[in-house]
Each structure stands twice: as structure tokens, then as C-alpha cells.
């Protein structure tokens, strides 16, 4: 179990949700299919998950994509970012997901740890601005089919 104290930006709580750490920044408009809740570059679902992304980039239309995902019940549960701007916060407010900010470098050890795990990882993210906490636990082995 790894725990991190973060800065809470938008309130929300996710209990033991699948963790998805994206390699780069996230452009909700283009990278995510709002009809399916799928992150296109990796072909994986973001629905109900806790995402770790470096930042929100690209289109300023992102909050509407977040809103559409929420109305379809396909949005993420929570997002942890390293760089934050108004597009990220507005996306969380309209998308109804928790948003927390990590300091630069704070996530490196966690991400390296997650990558070493053979099994899937679950994240518990509680964001109560101004504070937030992220706890991640990974299974030693992949679950049985």
C-alpha cells in the first residue's frame, strides 16, 4: 500500500477503483471517446477509474466532453494531475469527478512502483479541498479469469 498527501482541488471520493496511469498529458477532446468512455491512444476505458495524468492539454472544449461523459455515466471517478489550469478544474466541476494535484516528482516513485506490479492496482482517492489523499494497493498476481 502506497499513500500520498495531495492538494485537493475539487471535492470527491473514490473507493478502491482501478487505477489508470497515462504516460503523457490528457486532451479530453480527441483522446477520449465521449460515447464509449474509452481513452483512444491506449484503447482502455476511463469510466469509474482513478486517472493519473501529467496535465490537461489541448482543446478548451474539454469540460463539455467531461460533462457529456458524466451524463452518460462514463466519466472517471477521480483524476490526479501534476500541472493544473482552469480547463482541468472546470472539467472536474462539470464532469463531477474528484480532482487533486500532486507536486512535481511526487508521483514518480508511485508510478515506478505501480509499473513493477504484475497485477492490477486499486486507488482510493479522497479529495476534500484544500487536502486530498491517494492510497494505492496492487495485487501481487493478476486475478483469475
Amino acid at each position: 500500500m502506497m499513500r500520498l498527501k495531495l492538494r485537493g482541488l475539487v471535492e470527491g471520493a473514490c473507493n478502491a477503483r482501478p487505477l489508470l496511469a497515462l504516460a503523457g498529458p490528457l486532451n479530453l477532446y480527441g483522446d477520449v471517446d465521449p460515447e464509449l468512455g474509452v481513452y483512444r491512444p491506449a484503447g482502455v476505458s476511463i469510466s469509474g477509474r482513478v486517472l493519473i495524468v501529467r496535465s490537461f492539454v489541448g482543446s478548451t472544449v474539454a469540460p463539455y466532453v467531461a460533462y457529456a461523459l458524466r451524463r452518460r455515466g462514463l466519466g472517471p471517478c477521480g483524476v490526479v494531475v501534476e500541472d493544473v489550469d482552469g480547463v482541468a478544474v472546470a472539467s472536474a466541476v462539470l464532469g463531477g469527478f474528484a480532482l487533486a494535484k500532486a507536486d512535481r516528482g511526487q508521483l514518480a516513485a508511485l508510478l515506478a512502483g505501480v509499473r513493477r506490479q504484475p497485477g492490477p492496482c486499486l486507488a482510493t482517492l479522497v479529495s476534500r479541498p484544500p487536502g486530498a489523499e491517494l492510497a494505492v494497493s496492487c495485487r501481487a498476481r493478476p486475478p483469475d479469469a
Partner: peptide, 9 residues
């Protein structure tokens, strides 16, 4: 100006 998300603008 910052990059304002659509609904924020």
C-alpha cells in the same frame, strides 16, 4: 487571458 474552458468563458 488564461486558457478558459468553454463553459468558464
Amino acid at each position: 487571458t488564461n486558457r478558459e474552458g468553454g463553459p468558464v468563458a
